[in-house]
């Protein structure tokens, strides 16, 4: 401190003679300089780890990528040792499972976030918030167990019903299902994109819900009361104040859930039976996902097969990165995002 003061005084005396602008200089001292460099080093270390993840995957994947070329994106089969491999089927499967999950999870998440922030009695609210946050921390293998042993056997009837009555929509067609045959086996409906998607939806709904609830509860009180003062009903207030305010949070929460759904491994692995063709029929047995492919094949992979798996992992990584960047930029640009970090 004292040193700084003397130096500042000396600078002032020197500047008095000539008309040069005074140079402001504060010596932070040695401990502070050490602190700064340690903090900077910590930030740099984390940055290095994060960049290494992408860099190393690319380096390892290069062998397979350079051999496969553009065929990597368009090939459906996965036979790396025969030179015939690509992510067209697994990537489609991943996206379809994630889309089913989002289609189920978003209405649930928006509804329960609105319930917690607007309708629930205040005493119940804290408990509900804790419950939903706890659910976001439940391990994915638990959801996988539930999906495999409980949900799958109970949802087959519904899947058959949808395939029977809505089968004319191409998405819901099931090959090999005969609605007129009362003895038809239901195995064509097991291990489908639909079941995997619903299980993943159970996983991502709490995550999306907690982001949305956080944003909804930050809707300005003045505007809420203004809406009520103009004679709005509660729903009118929600539609004209809370939802427009929380639009960024809804989109951001959805994208965050989508990112988690794309990368989910174990719950999907437990449920699906992998096929390596593009499977657009949601209710049909057999689908695939990038993460499950890696978990399935890495044990038996040769060196080149490992490189191909790294390439698939890289594709998954890039996809989630894009989704997450989009989410954070949407949230940051929205009105609610300017004040909060959710």
């Amino acid at each position: 401190m004292r040193r700084t003061r003397e130096r500042a005084a000396g600078a002032a005396v020197g500047a008095a003679g000539v008309e040069a602008p005074r140079r402001l200089y504060a010596d932070p001292g040695l401990p502070d300089r050490i602190f700064r460099s340690v903090a900077r080093g910590g930030g740099g270390l984390v940055l290095a780890v994060m960049l290494l993840v992408g860099g190393f995957l690319l380096y390892r994947a290069w062998q397979a990528l350079s051999k496969a070329g553009w065929g990597f994106v368009t090939t459906e089969a996965w036979e790396p040792d025969a030179g015939n491999f690509g992510i067209a089927a697994v990537l489609t499967g991943t996206v379809l499972i994630a889309l089913v999950a989002i289609a189920v999870a978003v209405p649930l998440a928006v509804g329960s976030a609105l319930y917690i922030s607007e309708y629930a009695p205040p005493r119940l609210r804290r408990t509900l918030v804790s419950v939903v946050d706890l659910m976001a921390a439940v391990p994915s293998v638990v959801y996988g167990l539930w999906g495999l042993f409980f949900f799958q056997s109970h949802v087959l009837g519904t899947a058959r019903w949808i395939a029977t009555y809505l089968g004319w929509i191409p998405l819901f067609t099931v090959d090999g299902a005969d609605p007129t045959d009362p003895l038809a086996t239901e195995t064509v409906f097991t291990s489908s994109t639909f079941i995997a998607g619903v299980v993943v939806a159970m996983m991502v709904a709490p995550i999306a819900c907690s982001v949305m609830r956080e944003v909804f509860s930050q809707a300005p009180v003045g505007e809420r009361e203004g809406a009520y003062a103009l004679g709005a009903t509660r729903w009118g207030m929600i539609r004209s104040v809370v939802l427009p305010f929380g639009k960024g949070g809804v989109i951001g929460g959805t994208m965050l859930g989508l990112g988690r759904a794309l990368g989910e491994t174990i719950a999907v692995y437990l449920i699906i039976s992998p096929v390596f063709v593009i499977q657009p029929h949601l209710l049909q047995n057999g689908t695939s996902s990038v993460a499950a492919l890696i978990a399935l094949r890495f044990g038996e992979a040769s060196e080149f097969g490992m490189s191909a798996l790294m390439a698939a992992g890289l594709a998954l990584f890039l996809m989630t990165l894009v989704v997450n960047f989009a989410a954070s930029s949407i949230v940051a640009r929205s009105r609610s995002g300017a004040a909060s970090d959710s």
Binding site: M50, L51, R60, L262, F317, T320
Partner: peptide, 21 residues
């Protein structure tokens, strides 16, 4: 920005990274 983008890092990719390195 990088850290925020990495919060959605799929866990299997983290495993794959350590496996590769």
């Amino acid at each position: 920005t990088i850290v925020e983008a990495m919060t959605a890092l799929p866990s299997i990719v983290a495993g794959l990274f350590i496996y590769a390195t």
